[in-house]
Design a protein around this nucleic acid. Sequence first.
RNA 1: GGGGAAGUGUCGGAAUUGGCAGACGAGCAUGACUUAGGAUCAUGUGCCGCAAGGCGUGCGGGUUCAAAUCCCGCCUUCCCCA
Length: 820
Amino acid sequence: MNEKRNISEGYVPSLIETKWQQKWHADGLYNANIDPNKPKHYALTMLPYPSGDLHIGHWYAMTPSDARARFMRMNGYNVMFPIGFDAFGLPAENAAIKNRVHPKQWTYKNIEFMRAQLRSMGAMWDWRREAISADPEYYRWTQWFFTRLYKHGLAYRKMSPVDFCPNCNTTLAREQVWGDDRHCERCGTPVIKKDLDQWFFRTTSYAEELLDYAGTDWPDRVRTLQTNWIGKSQGASVIFRTEQGDPLEIFTTRPDTLWGATFMVLSPEHPLVDKLTTPAQNDAVQEYKLQATRQSDIEREAVDKEKTGVFTGSFAINPVNGEKIQVWIADYVLMSYGTGAIMAVPAHDQRDFEFARKFGLEVRVVIQPEGADPLDGASMPASVPASGTMVNSGSLTGTSADEAFTAAIRYLEEKGTGKASTNYKLRDWLISRQRYWGAPIPMVYCGECGWNPVPDDQLPVLLPDDVEWKPTGESPLKLHPTWKNTSCPVCAKPAMRETDTMDTFMCSSWYHLRYLSPKYDRGPFDPQEYDYWMPVDTYTGGIEHANMHLIYTRFFHKAGRDMGIMKGREPMTQLRNQGMVLGEDHEKMSKSRGNVIAPDVLVERYGADAVRAFLMFFARWDMGAPWNSNGIDGTVRWLRRVWSAVIEPGTPANPDPEILVALRRKVHQTLRQVTRDFETFEFNTIVSALMELMNEMYKAREAGAGGTPAWQEAINLYLLMLAPVCPHVAEELWQYIGKPYSIHTQSWPKVDQAAAAEQEITLIVQVNGKLRDRITVPADIQDEAAKAIALASPAVQKLLGGRSPRQVILVPKRLVNIVL
RNA sequence: GGGGAAGUGUCGGAAUUGGCAGACGAGCAUGACUUAGGAUCAUGUGCCGCAAGGCGUGCGGGUUCAAAUCCCGCCUUCCCCA
């Protein structure tokens, strides 16, 4: 089939899309190489998990990222736009258990399929840089990073609870715990918490620095999410003592209310609980501890939940007044926040208040709000906010609560029983997973030498292939007959490997570095590539990763910098988030809900370019929307119109010169808007501006402008503007009009400001803020002239009825508001 | 529960960030061309009203010459929670 015949058949995406994809690939058009003579631009889109199928949400995320990377390239940047796969993780293991396929096989088969899906998008990925986190040559370096963090004291081991199914005898991930009663997804048994020795990274050491976003262009929304997640609060740590003499440390943000503490509450998991529990209370305490382990933290923290708790039978001494107060346990105190123990000040904290009322504990007012009747602890209906004047507070009585805050800390420090303290909600990062399909934690335990990292020359610690899954779901690494046996890296005696693997967030914390040089074997990345490309200039991905992935990757970078491996403050300079595409039923898209929209079907039917354009057009990118296929026909119609405008320009028919001026004006105005919208990630209005321009061009062609120089300029600029959005059809038509290959290596056009300037504007005339007239006036109209014209309007004269206006408000070159 | 967002025609959405509400697209209606149309082209399309005109951006207040946009209080929906 020859070229001309294709063209005359009209716009048939299938005839052009694969053709160009293959040519671009063969020519290495999108290969990114170091070029010191050009400014670089590292554009990164969050890497997909190879679940088996790309869904429309992936395209929604990636298409605009690709379009913008293309736009940057046309603006003279040397652009790198890599892709890869976040290939470890639980779904592969579930598939293994369910379908008896090896996770490796399942994962790599999925990757193969998804590569083809990704290629059909026509994105400018440099596939030579593809990185797959489950490749040994990748996870070798994930493990290497672990050992570095360990050597720098940033990885440590401690006991920590996991969700555990006592029937299956296995730990469960959050998504394996179902329902309000929190039962095991496999067997339905209620889940309990079990303490295991696990590895942690000291993310909290970087809490303070993570609060500082200097050097980033990140959305305020993300900064706020992270700041709240890190959750810094200032207060005091105070040491109470149990009757038996054990120190019992608490953190409080309100040290000023210390005199109002009438009891203490420990988390049921607190280490002192058993020691504090008296024989008479033991049954009740043990029973309560068990039921507390059955709940999620989210449930436990719920403020409006009915308060529960049990008295331990023991007392503690309040260090500021020597009073003996009861020690309770309650699930609303979490072991993971602060010290897992609180002083309860029911008069000024609502949760403590509800607890006190339920169990008949004393409520003692220590702060009297200004101008209110004196509060009575016994009868007050709710806690009151802690601001006002101190009462019943020893030496602090009479001062304001604000002053009392620092005074109380001074008092504690003088007495040596507390100090000013800062607490963070951020916890250390638990990275141990009792799973097979992840990077093995490269640590070895020796009876004599303890824990030691696997030496670099023995990395990677390879996952064994010959594993089996017991129906219980226990980790195959633990069950493997020989894998865990090794020798101690220090004394060479027989030793045991750690059988846990790493959280996949570890893999995704540095994938942007592996892209730099995925085959490099002398380090995690080639330093030359690093120095040229890093940091990531534009990072795009879902807002849902604001807290976990994006905090982990920042932590990882800062820790790497302090270890001399990475450079600079932040790994990603600019961040932009897309919203989520929900299913047509307005629910989150998922296989289990059966509401997944597959791009393949759409591409086959409408072509990749139309799908790309529609995805950019159908919703605000940063907001997302429920999917709706209805509008996609409009996008196809538009591309057909574009096709027809290029193929059938018509012949010049001596048009009115004003038609040509107006055409050029519209073209350059559109270019101005499209350029701005690319810069600000407003992709939907890029497409609508292009549609609008095409509508104008059809009218101009109708009026005889087709084939004129103005028309040809319009076509040229149109295709250049279209190229980042619809790369295939733009390339095809660019070739058709005889321009040199490739359109994607052309420069972004410049706006002709003079041509874009309006000669006339519509002056809005309001009376008392209501629209009364619209008058076309010269664009350079002066203020006084505009007022005069507005006042002379018949509509205004009628309303004035001979009166003179009280006030005339003028917005230059836009609006006149006449106030009567 | 905590944290973060968002509510605009029949639908997806636009609005130079305080200045013409509803761009663009879908849908619908009418017409043209057609043996035919899930093709193409043209025109119309927020609501009430014959009209003049009035009303309209989740609901209720407020600030302002002017509010979808700013402030206060509600309601609803969505996202994240190691």
